[in-house]
């Protein structure tokens, strides 16, 4: 499967990844419109952490043995066996936040606008390269193809 690799030493904390993620997951997919239509705020599914000169961007790691999937009481959070992508079915999610409770990366958010439904990275499955990776100016995010563990 594909995974996003984080290279902390190249991250300059510009937060372009967050902006492109927000646009990608907006209705219009257009940067100016997205931020104007964003009522309430569109959530970025990638998160930049920063203290002083240290920064990095982090998003769902799409764990093999994902804690969020086993904690999910509604069956909304599943790992696609073919693509390896962990996705949250917004229709099934009831907003109990068990996934938030167990994600050691802290990369699942409450989508307040829908009143429920955990919001997380979907690895931009319809794009060749996830938008956060594509738009990182310093190659602090890379996409890497990993061999399938078992088949």
């Amino acid at each position: 499967m594909k995974r996003i690799f984080i290279d902390e030493k190249y991250c300059i904390g510009c937060r372009l990844c967050e902006i492109y993620c927000q646009v990608k997951h907006s209705k219009s997919k257009k940067i100016l419109k997205a931020f104007r239509e964003g009522q309430p705020d569109i959530l970025s599914r990638v998160l930049v952490e920063e203290i002083g000169h240290d920064s990095f961007a982090i998003q769902c790691r799409h764990c093999d043995d994902a804690p969020c999937v086993s904690a999910c009481i509604s069956g909304a959070m599943t790992k696609n066996e073919k693509t390896g992508v962990v996705v949250c079915d917004q229709e099934k999610c009831v907003g109990c936040w068990s996934c938030i409770m167990v994600c050691p990366y802290g990369v699942i958010k409450r989508d307040i606008s829908s009143g429920k439904a955990a919001s997380k990275c979907d690895l931009c499955v319809d794009e060749e390269v996830p938008v956060c990776v594509k738009n990182c100016p310093n190659e602090a995010l890379k996409i890497v193809q990993f061999p399938d563990e078992e088949k």
Binding site: C103, P104, I108
Partner: peptide, 12 residues
């Protein structure tokens, strides 16, 4: 409650 799982990881 955001990022609660970070604590889960630290406990675990």
């Amino acid at each position: 409650i955001e990022r609660a799982g970070i604590y889960y990881g630290l406990i675990y």
